[in-house]
Design a protein around this nucleic acid. Structure first.
Length: 423
RNA sequence: GGAGAGGUGACUGAGUGGUUGAAGGUGCGCGAUUGGAAAUCGCGUGUAGGUGAUGAGCCUACCGAGGGUUCGAAUCCCUCCCUCUCCGCCA
């Protein structure tokens, strides 16, 4: 959520952000409600002032044993009017908040303006798309053949869109998780967190999944809890409504979590095998930083994700998302795609975003600057480091041999009892 | 699920109807003291909103959340949430 005062002061900038992001938001309506609220506030507060002053006088009169019934009668009337004002204000504020929640974050000036993903801009790439064999089979074939992937079995449990890893496949999954977390903890200075995998409404609003994505999430109605669609939710909300000491920044967390997504309405394309599933594992990085450093921290975060892919020797490309493809809450975002030789596609395995203070304002994430001074909102960032299912796809396809086996990337061998090949 | 205790500022901790936005302490900032530091002393330190010029000042709100009683609520009543202890159940 943007600062109302910022919106008030920069309406044309916000209007441009809404246009560039292709969002629908009633900025004019918001501003007029805001004006109405402030006008009523002035009147209501003047009455409250009167009440406070008079109440004190009544207290004095009472103490002196004098009669205060005239004043009390008058204040009874004033209180009634205050109540009317406050009821009007409360109703308006509901509208105001609802309107404010439809205003997206403003893209950073370095973000290219564009309508959709076709106008994202390539930033860099690493490695050449290649594979050990000329024409590797898709992961769902070799996965079934080697007995490490059981899609049919998973559908018996939970329906289509779920997968089960078995035997060495499960071990590979676990190895990837452990490898990535170790890299970020030991190599990049993150603190590991093992958070809840469900979150309440306040948390979902704090990171901006609500109100927009309600129907993309699994929901436990009994307890009004949502299965997390990404580790970003628990990690960013860990310090919700807290004021951190400035010395603690930057806070850098990494966590393994499963991610649950209903993916309602996305059946058909790109859904075979592991490409788009309702539940996948992910290692997520989140940072809470001082505003002045957030764009440097974004570059560092992105390179932390890239380090995973380089260690696994998976060719990738990085692109900066244009305004039209940028998410509602983000000010800037890099996507990282890896090449998978079997399905012959670039697969998105990481999104690294700077939200500036957009999430922090909603989530109440502040800090006391080290040298003293007023509490300020932190800037929040997050990025996958990286998403598992598609990384497994690339490994199963890029590392296929002509013997129908899969070479284990060297970086993973220590996590798989030294296993060199899945046969 | 049952019984009980409790939620106050960055932290700790007083406060049961009327100068309490909130004592005391810690922490933090500034200053004094010191060769320097520690210790000590003095002063200052909440958040949000409104109104001013994104100044000073002034005003309003905030003691888990939301309602209620009252001229007046951190203080009384109701509902909800959370934490802790004990019991039960259970991985």
């Amino acid at each position: 959520m943007l600062d109302l005062r910022f919106i008030r002061a920069n309406p044309e900038l916000v209007a441009k952000a809404i246009r560039d992001k292709g969002e629908k938001a009633d900025l004019g309506g918001l501003l007029s409600i805001d004006e109405e609220v402030r006008a009523l506030l002035v009147e209501s507060e003047a009455l409250k002032r009167e009440r406070n002053v008079e109440s004190e006088k009544i207290a004095v009169l009472r103490k002196e044993g004098a009669d205060a019934s005239a004043e009390i009668a008058r204040m009874r009337d004033v209180s009634g009017r205050i109540k009317e004002y406050d009821e009007k204000l409360a109703a308006l504020r509901v509208d105001l908040t609802a309107a404010a929640l439809t205003i997206p974050n403003v893209p950073h000036e370095s973000v290219p303006v564009g309508a959709d993903e076709d106008e994202n801009v390539a930033v860099r790439s690493w490695g050449e798309p290649r594979s050990l064999v000329a024409d590797p089979v898709p992961h769902w074939e070799i996965g079934e053949t080697l007995g490490i992937l059981d899609i049919k079995g998973a559908s018996r449990i939970a329906g289509s869109g779920f997968v089960a890893f078995t035997g060495t496949g499960a071990r590979l999954e676990r190895a990837l998780i452990a490898f990535m977390i170790d890299l970020h903890v030991n190599g990049h200075g993150y603190t590991e967190v093992s958070p809840p995998f469900v979150a309440n409404r306040a948390a979902m609003e704090g990171t901006g999944q609500l109100p927009k994505l309600e129907f993309d999430m699994y929901h436990c109605s009994e307890d009004d809890l949502f299965l997390i669609p990404t580790g970003e939710v628990p990690l960013t909300n860990l310090h919700r409504d807290e004021i951190l000491q400035g010395e603690r920044l930057p806070v850098k967390y990494v966590a393994y979590t499963p991610c649950f997504r209903r993916e309602a309405g996305s059946y058909g394309k790109d859904t075979r095998g592991l490409l788009r599933v309702h539940q996948f594992d992910k290692v997520e990085m989140v940072k809470l930083v001082e505003p002045e450093t957030s764009y440097d921290e974004l570059e560092a975060l992105t390179s932390n994700a890239e380090a995973v892919l380089e260690a696994l020797d998976l060719p990738y490309r990085v692109k900066v998302l244009c305004t039209g493809d940028l998410s509602f809450s983000a000010a800037k975002c890099y996507d990282i795609d890896i090449w998978s030789a079997g399905v012959k596609q670039w697969l998105e395995v990481s999104s690294c975003s700077n939200f500036e203070d957009f999430q922090a304002r909603r989530a109440g994430l502040r800090y006391h600057p080290a040298g003293g001074g007023k509490a300020r909102y932190v800037h929040t960032l997050n990025g996958s480091g990286v998403a598992m299912a598609r990384t497994v796809v690339a490994i199963l396809e890029n590392y296929q041999t002509d013997r129908g086996t899969i070479v284990v990337p060297e970086a993973l061998r220590p996590y798989m009892n030294g296993l060199e090949e899945i046969t």
